[in-house]
Design a protein around this nucleic acid. Structure first.
Lengths: 168, 168
DNA sequence: ATATAACAGTTATGCCTTATAACGGATTTG
DNA sequence: CAAATCCGTTATAAGGCATAACTGTTATAT
């Protein structure tokens, strides 16, 4: 899963024009490449905990917001409600969270972490933190914060598209 | 496809603690969110051209490197060879590239853009450039270049993991 | 030179992620 | 009270990504 051929090594001299020069000029492409690298590494990091990126994300939000509902969790993670079901099921099956009927609303469930879930949360977030530090080890703290800030600004663009109806 | 509920609007006042505060501290999570936004927007941009992100990327690399083989294309895009087949098939079916037998190697194909492919390349890259500018409109040029540079440094980490055998 | 290994492209297959439509039960609204 | 809305769910589909295994071709080694 984590083994991939190294084009730079295969290329030999290592100073070739890199066939994707044009694509590299696009922010989105560079982001896809970098995210792909992070994703592959993170997958291996989470595997020992029996977690995937999505289940880990969900667990973190639930621990940080005990008692929230599935729809709220889906909103927080920008996941469609139908796709949330399996994720929650998996966390419940793993004994990491409990799905109790919400007070005052018999259709909703209140999601809370179990003790086991809190314990795993601690260990997993530490591991992911280490993973994150490793992936950004070539960035000084200033650049790293600038990166996160820039990512936030990019994501925010989609919320601005209200007045000017460019998108359908 | 491009319509999504706005949590900031739904939240009303708009200054809530944002339920994913912990996740936001991870570079990878911010990247996933930003990339998701870009991906959704780019999908709509490419649709009128009959292209997807992958077919667009492949077309660009082929135009920039006429005559390269499928395996080289796959390496350039970090895509597994089996998954390259359908992408190339689609481009050939759309009349954008030609798949001619490579000289001196009867197993390989040389991929070249057709005139139609070159024409679409011009129009599509212009549209994607506009898309990219729109997504990064909140970043000044210095920040944008710093972002791309940081993304490259993150991606490069995976190539450093040779001497220290951390990953399997 | 010939057997063996390595390579190019392909097929089949499976898993994960994401998106949509539609349903039953519960709640709110008019 | 009736209608619209909301909650979680099921079913379904498409796309991205990864692996094993196969055919034909080329390179390597004895």
């Amino acid at each position: 899963m984590a083994n991939r051929a190294d084009p730079a090594v295969k290329a030999g001299s290592g100073h070739e024009p890199s066939r994707d020069a044009t694509l590299r000029s696009f922010t989105g492409y560079s982001m896809k490449r970098a995210f792909h690298a992070i994703q592959a590494d993170l997958k291996d990091v989470l595997e020992p905990f029996g977690l995937r990126m999505l289940t880990f994300s969900a667990l973190v939000v639930i621990v940080d917001n005990p008692g929230l509902r599935q729809a709220e969790l889906a909103d927080a993670l920008v996941i469609e409600r139908p796709n949330m079901v399996l994720i929650v099921d998996q966390l419940v099956a793993a004994g990491l969270i409990s799905r109790a009927p919400a007070e005052g609303d018999r259709r909703a469930y209140a999601l809370r972490p179990t003790e086991e879930g809190c314990a795993l949360y601690q260990r997993a977030t530490a591991a992911v933190r280490a993973h994150d530090d490793r992936m950004t080890k070539n960035l000084d703290e200033e650049k790293r914060q600038l990166l996160v800030s820039a990512l936030g600004l990019i994501e925010a663009v989609q919320w601005e598209e209200d007045d000017n109806g460019e998108r359908s």
